[in-house]
């Protein structure tokens, strides 16, 4: 994880994984999404330098990688909080209190959509349906774990747990 700008480099093993991704598709361009995921998993976000690095690895124009990285919302183009809370407010969640959860978290952390707390522990984002409508309201943390059937109490506890992690 890196909050500052970083020098993107893959080690030998990671370069092997890049080769594996390239081998899955008829053309190397198709490896751009998995390799951008590798960058984000390693550094937490995707810097412009990293986009150039990925372009050079795959033999793609830098602007192509920039185009892809900016099209998809899950690629972070700047550092987010250590725990990035992605709260769904789409219809099924809204009907079950998604906005109440969002407002509560936003108020408690004192940050608005896509902002990061001063201690860089948390950031929040209002997201679209995450395919978890039957267990609404829900949120996802840092593109990974889902937390479902949320209540104000359970979300408070989650924040506490994450803070101590």
């Amino acid at each position: 994880m890196s909050n500052e700008n970083y020098e993107p480099v893959f080690d030998e093993n990671e370069l092997k994984t890049v080769q594996y991704h390239i081998s899955k598709y008829p053309k190397p361009m198709a490896a751009v999404m998995p390799v951008l995921w590798m960058i984000q998993n390693k550094y937490g976000w995707i810097s412009t330098d990293a986009m150039k690095y990925v372009g050079d690895l795959l033999g793609l124009p830098h602007d192509h990688v920039l185009g892809v990285a900016t099209f998809y919302t899950m690629y972070f183009k700047r550092p987010m909080g250590k725990h990035h809370l992605q709260i769904c407010t789409n219809v099924s969640c809204m009907l079950r209190g998604g906005y109440e959860i969002y407002d509560h978290v936003s108020g408690k952390l004192g940050i608005k959509n896509k902002e990061v707390t001063d201690d860089r522990m948390f950031s929040i984002e209002e997201v679209e349906c995450l395919g978890s409508c039957g267990t609404a309201p829900m949120l996802q943390v840092s593109n990974r774990e889902y937390y479902e059937n949320l209540t104000i109490e359970s979300v408070d506890k989650l924040l506490e747990d994450l803070r101590n992690k």
Binding site: N90, V91, S92, E128, C129, G131, S132, C133, G134
Partner: peptide, 11 residues
């Protein structure tokens, strides 16, 4: 891709 709001079956 299952992103249509209200859909959570393929999962």
């Amino acid at each position: 891709d299952e992103s249509e709001p209200g859909s959570f079956k393929d999962r």
